[in-house]
Design a protein around this nucleic acid. Structure first.
Length: 192
DNA sequence: ATTACGATCATCT
DNA sequence: GATGATCGTAATC
């Protein structure tokens, strides 16, 4: 668990695994966005606790899934302790560019809202040790409020990163866990 | 290359 | 009744 702005880049390179009757799909996360609670007008949680956003205010590591524009499901994971709102939007993974195509490809809908993504099940996160070479930071896309905040992260060179990409505001190179010391900033992922 | 628009509906005011 | 954390297509530069 941790701040959305810390967890969002930490999730890049991790796997989203979807298990359903007899098949397993896995997609490497290549693009994420951070959404805070208060002080972030673009966040659904900014308006306070409602029935829709309850998962964002719940325990960390839970799926927050909502319908946008009447046709696309968007997948997020809550990252802050119970009672505090904050999440990370999965914008692209595997070959699926864009949050709507991602959920369509993995057959994710409202039925998985609130699901614990940190333990193996129908939908969960996993870490196979992959380390992105270079992560770029840009402004978030598709929003009107607080659109200038540098809360979008993607793995450079990945074709599935959604458009428009916008100017890269900064970039960094992740450090391997064994060289990072004891500080771990991501939410728990199932190891391999 | 960039900009505009319509589809479609759960949620909230 | 208005509003989207989108996407594909079409029009225009």
């Amino acid at each position: 668990m941790g701040l959305p702005t810390t967890v969002a880049p930490a999730l890049l390179g991790k796997l989203l695994i979807r298990r359903q009757r007899g098949r397993e799909l896995r997609a490497r996360i290549v693009e994420t966005e951070a959404y805070l609670g208060q002080n972030d007008a673009a966040a659904h949680a900014a308006a306070g606790l409602t029935a829709r956003t309850a998962a964002l205010f719940g325990p960390p590591g839970r799926a927050y899934i909502y319908l946008i524009y009447g046709m696309h499901w968007c997948l997020n994971v809550s990252t802050l302790p119970d009672g505090q709102a904050g999440g990370v939007l999965f914008r692209a993974a595997g070959d699926w560019s864009g949050p709507g195509r991602l959920t369509r490809g993995l057959d994710i809908g409202a039925g998985l809202n609130g699901w614990d993504l940190t333990r193996p099940g129908p939908l969960f996160l996993a870490d196979d040790g992959y380390l992105p070479a270079s992560i770029a930071v840009t402004a978030r896309v598709g929003i009107r409020k607080a659109a200038q905040l540098p809360y979008r992260y993607f793995i450079e060179g990945e074709a599935a990163v959604s458009r428009p990409r916008g100017p890269v505001l900064s970039r960094f190179h992740p450090i391997a866990p064994e060289r990072r010391g004891r500080v771990y900033s991501g939410i728990p992922c199932h190891g391999h």
